[in-house]
Amino acid sequence: MHRTTLTPRTIISVLHPHRPILDFLLPAFTHHPTHFPRRHNATAASAPPSPQPPPSSYGQHDPQGAKRRTPLSPSQKSFLDSALRVNQAGELAATLIYTHQTPPLLRTHPHLRQLMHHMHAQEAGHFATFNAMLAHHRIRPTAMYPLWTAAASTLGWATGLMGKEAAMACTEAVETEIGGHYNGQVRVLVRWMREMEERGEEVGDEVRELVGTLKRIRDEELEHLDEAVGEGARLARPYRLLNRVIRSGCKGAIWVSERV
């Protein structure tokens, strides 16, 4: 920076200290291998119309990793806000359903102890994950928290009493909705990542990690779904009725939790 080689650039900056330096318009008399690090806040609109490397190799040779980073837009923020709120509410409900299903279910089917314990432990892990995320990203929990607590406990207890098949049908219905819900979120986030990469921006670790976490949780939820079907969920007596009621209940709860 403190070199005083006489280049067109230095001459111009001495003559016109407040002018933007348009030295790329001048013929190059001297070869100066100056490296321009890309600025953090440079946007596509303000960047000089210099030929840019293709997005795939963009930033890889950059010593400071100074790729552009655009803050999330308000609509993206509000999407994440409601998505994570719903996820926390969903995991709260799932944990409670398994908690209250387990005692009546194990009385009649003690061999399910392992499965129920495993599913409950996974749901509790998911719940803790989203609790931490909400606190970290300053997201409001749903205002319906007490209502979902009561509803999920009742649902778990009632289907547990109705027998193994009904309990498994409940798991199947809930996990179908939740799996689809997570899938939708992953799809949106992956689209954002693709758009950011196309624009040559850096996808922040926040979004990247979130996608990873959501995918892992979705896969675990869908595992529960398979296990429930394997344990005879489809044999539940009013299977279609149970399935429909629980699934529409889930949809309604998701709709409400996204908003309040």
Binding site: P74, K77, S78, H136, H137, R138, R140, D205
Partner: peptide, 14 residues
């Protein structure tokens, strides 16, 4: 509940 939703998703990267 716009009064209670004091802020949206808070990003720590920006």
């Amino acid at each position: 509940l716009s009064i209670l939703s004091a802020r949206q998703y808070h990003s720590h990267e920006h």
